[in-house]
Nucleic acid binder design. Structure first.
Lengths: 325, 325
DNA sequence: GGACCTGTAGACAACGTTGTCAAGAGGTTA
DNA sequence: TAACCTCTTGACAACGTTGTCTACAGGTCC
């Protein structure tokens, strides 16, 4: 900028004014400055600007894994909103490790992001307190913060969605409905288990429940165990996209009725089509990002807790009856 | 930092030394400083550090769309390498729009990213010249830069992969093999078309080729047209993941042999399993990122042009014979 | 002609770091 | 005792912006 100024024969501040489109510069002078800028290939140093202005126009996003389609969709939506607001997105994947989550958040904060959107991996977020007190808005998506932290949150209706899935299977005559879910330490998994239990009521049977990381071997073992029972399940409810896909792989010819939580590409092309309780990751991302920008615009109302509805999409697998087996 | 210094009763510079783990600070003093840091919840302002040091420890990544599984996988791999090097990742999706690509790159450069990895959307990258001359390393992934720009590039073997696919279908007795690809303005699509033509030789028939954005209606129209011919195709080669999936959707009962470029989740669960020529997006991301960091460590050798091999995975659909129809 | 605008331009400090240099305390060597 | 070294510490400038304040020229109003 200094070079541009001397090249154009004006003061530093005048260049600054031109670059920022501030008024009070003679058109002719501005033209001369712009010419010098082009000639020198100058581009403003954002770090200095940030330092001076105190705002980075950068949002941090912490998710579990960009390579997971659910979070990829969420990311894309967040990114779109962020860019529409003239900001940039720093993102990182926690890989479901609380330590990594915290590292990412702290790194983002050291870089003075204006705001933070996170899908937490851990359940202790007291480390956020200094940032929150410093006024950095934070929005939690998909899962709520741990105890003692109250911030804006955007969740899916996990309990309701699970109840809907189970009700659907019940209405098709099933009484032995198994649940294959993720580790119950994960908020969403716990909520879906709760909905499953609530809707099942007296039909609940602990032997038809398996909650663990959806690794192929673990799921296979659980499925084998359940189908080896005297009264095996006639229907399955799978707790998330990964569980659904893994389960489909290990079913291996068996054709129980099945409803999965989370939609996934090609669910309609399988035979039978896979009925799912669909979340909308883009919607979640958009809502979270917009909430964040409302805070950045100065909204200081009490923290919001939004629950997005989910939608059951029948495609065949969830409409199979016990007689079909 | 100033506050920490006065709280600990030392000079600014001493705090700086402690924060950066520089030697020459008495352990006792350092302890006092660390206590003050904890007490005040201080965290270093990275913007100021960047301004002073001139390096941002930030890498920019421009891709086509994070929500596309191929780019999501690539992103994740890049992110991992970047974080292992103590840097952060700024990312953005161009949505296949050259203008957006350029905006993203320019914004990243204004923020002084240390390096840039990009999947280009446009074919004119002369705008990168000032940055390249300023010494910012850039790596192109998946597609090469436009004319006049010579930088490190990591591509898949598009021509070879297409030849492999076509050879596979030929070897199963097919002579009427259609190609459903993306817009040939896209480098990868053009390369795959070329491989298809080369391998097909005299069997090439323009009527069996459709190259356009894989929108459902367009693909459906192309498929209907081809199957309405007097001598319809007995096999299809689809030019990328999106084309493959869309084609599967519109085939609607017809069962030609099929090989797709790009692997996708669940390809094995469809009936028949979908044979594909698989790229490895993680590998591409990792290679690109490692190349970039080699440049950042000072490697100034001539620009590298890496071509990653692809692998044909037979799953059933590509092994159907014409007689099967 | 003086007071008062308005439009344009520049001087200067400040943002929070870090690199450079200098200085004081204390010990060792000649 | 002087000269020299090491260890620890601090003063200060600089990074490239932008906000604030001031200055000047020219016009308008009384």
């Amino acid at each position: 900028m200094k070079d541009v100024a001397s090249a154009a024969g004006v003061a530093l501040k005048t260049v600054s004014r031109v670059v920022n489109g501030e008024p009070g510069v003679h058109p002719e002078t501005a033209e001369r400055v712009r010419a010098a800028i082009d000639r020198l290939g100058y581009s403003r140093n954002e770090s200095a600007r940030v330092l001076r202005r105190g705002t980075t126009a950068t949002i941090g996003l912490v998710i579990e894994d960009v390579a997971d389609p659910f979070y990829a969709g969420l990311s894309r939506a967040v990114e779109t909103v962020v860019i529409d607001h003239g900001c940039l997105l720093l993102s990182g994947s926690s890989g479901e490790q609380p330590g990594r989550e915290r590292e990412l958040v702290e790194t983002f904060c050291a870089r003075r992001v204006d705001g933070l959107i996170m899908v937490p991996a851990g359940d202790d977020h007291t480390y956020l307190r200094p940032e929150l007190e410093a006024g950095t808005p934070v929005v939690f998506a998909d899962r709520p913060p741990g105890a003692g932290i109250d911030v804006d949150t955007v969740l899916s209706d996990n309990v309701g969605g699970a109840r809907q899935a189970v009700r659907h299977l019940l209405s098709h005559g099933h009484r032995r409905i198994a649940f294959l879910g993720d580790d119950p330490a994960i908020f969403t998994a716990a909520g879906r288990l709760q909905g499953y239990k609530e809707e099942l009521g007296g039909l609940f049977d602990q032997r038809l429940v398996s909650m663990r990381t959806p690794a192929p071997e673990a799921v296979r073992a659980a499925v084998e165990r359940m189908f080896g029972l005297d009264d095996p399940p006639t229907a399955l409810f799978t707790g998330n996209g990964r569980c659904t896909v893994t389960t489909l792989r290990v079913l291996d010819g068996r054709r129980p009725a099945l409803v999965g939580f989370d939609d996934f590409e090609l669910a309609d092309l399988l035979d039978p089509g896979v009925s799912v309780v669909a979340q909308d990751p883009s919607w979640m991302g958009r809502v979270a990002a917009e909430l964040l920008f409302r805070r950045l615009r100065g909204d200081t109302g009490p923290s919001e807790h939004i629950e997005l509805p989910v939608r059951l999409i029948p495609r065949g697998s969830g409409e199979l009856t016990p007689e079909h087996l």
